[in-house]
């Protein structure tokens, strides 16, 4: 946990965020009461399967989900200013300037018809009163910072002339162009090769360390989070099911869903299990989520009490922010989550 978190309140604070989309089949509730805080210089990992609402949460922070069929409530405060109710123009000033975002697919996140340098300069020009030449020089500098070779030449390339990893670097360069305080990285490594993934993560880690950049790292891969995050928040079906420090989540996970995620990690330092464990079943429909605990239909440990939705609270009786949504007794959990000497979802009690 970051020691700097308390000085002047959190940098970014999300409270009871709810985001729904009106569809012809009814209201699709993508995010259902999510809260978190992010301190200066901290890395928060948000983890969950696709469709759990983690991306929608991140995009809503930036106001990117605003649309006529979106129903948004709750609050998002950045440096004390609310972003949910902010006017378009105020929001525009925050985007790119104070909070920057990089996306999953660097192939499609850059406009194919403009040169890379132009797209970076465009962001600088949108916020700063500088000449085209100055913006361009800055873009070259940024490309060099993120490790693009020969940036003065590559700046005039089109996105298709870059490799996937270079494109993501260019996206990072763009995000950094105005020295934001928060970087939201939405699955930044998912579309990349494994070796490139590591490079991008290292880059993000460096920026966090060297520039005191706060990062929200969104991923479905706990392995990615393990590399860089200070704190972790696990989401399932639009809700946070567990949150804690990296160590708490990895070594003392409380929610069966977290066990399942940990169990499906391939670990090179352990013998490979006969069959890679996975969580059976599908996430529930967000149009009509099941009553009670949302993980219940897939949970082998479910019992009667699970028909009632557990709240997100600390259940370990210690002074920690480690909280979860599971009715099982902590002692019970310890025995149930152990599968073949490692953490896993386990089989239903016979």
């Amino acid at each position: 946990m970051s020691p700097r978190a308390t000085a002047s309140g959190p940098l970014l604070s999300v409270k009871d965020l709810e985001v729904g989309f009106a569809t012809e089949d009814g209201l699709l509730k993508a995010v259902d009461g999510v809260s978190f805080e992010l301190a200066r210089g901290e890395v928060l990992g948000i983890v969950g399967e696709s469709g759990c609402g983690k991306s929608v949460t991140a995009q809503t922070v930036m106001g990117l989900t605003r649309s006529s069929n979106a129903r948004i409530s709750g609050s998002v405060e950045f440096n004390g200013a609310d972003l949910i109710e902010a006017s378009d123009d105020d929001l525009r000033k925050v985007r790119g300037e104070s909070i920057a975002m990089i996306f999953q697919d660097p192939m499609t996140s850059l406009n194919p018809v403009y040169k890379v340098g132009k797209q970076i300069a465009e962001q600088i020009l949108a916020h700063r009163d500088v000449s085209d030449k100055e913006a361009r020089d800055r873009a070259i500098e940024l490309l060099r910072d993120v490790g693009i070779p020969h940036p003065e030449r590559r700046i005039d390339d089109y996105p298709y002339e870059y490799s996937g990893g270079m494109r993501q670097r260019a996206m990072v360069a763009m995000a950094l162009s105005l020295e934001p305080e928060v970087l939201i990285a939405d699955e930044p490594t998912t579309a990349l090769d494994v070796t490139i993934q590591a490079q991008i993560l290292t880059l993000i880690e460096q920026l966090n360390r060297d520039r005191d950049l706060a990062v929200v790292l969104i991923t479905h891969d706990l392995g990615v989070v393990a590399e860089v995050a200070d704190r972790v928040q696990v989401m399932y079906a639009g809700q946070v099911v567990e949150r804690g420090t990296l160590d708490e989540i990895f070594y003392d996970p409380q929610h069966p869903y977290t066990w399942g995620l940990l169990g499906s990690l391939t670990r090179l330092d352990r013998p490979r299990p006969k069959r890679l464990p996975q969580i059976a079943g599908q996430p529930p429909s967000l149009l009509s989520p099941p009553g009670g605990c949302r993980f219940r239909p897939r949970c082998p440990h479910a019992f009667e009490q699970c028909a009632e939705l557990p709240s997100l609270e600390g259940r370990l009786g210690k002074r920690s922010e480690h909280a979860d949504r599971c009715w099982l007794q902590p002692k019970e959990k310890e025995s149930r989550r152990s599968v073949d000497g490692r953490i896993g979802l386990g089989a239903p009690a016979a």
Partner: peptide
Amino acid sequence: NEDYVRTARAKGLSERQVRTRH
């Protein structure tokens, strides 16, 4: 609905710039 339009918004371009340029 393209990703690069979302990127353009995230950059802090005005809605008019997003609509015409991108």
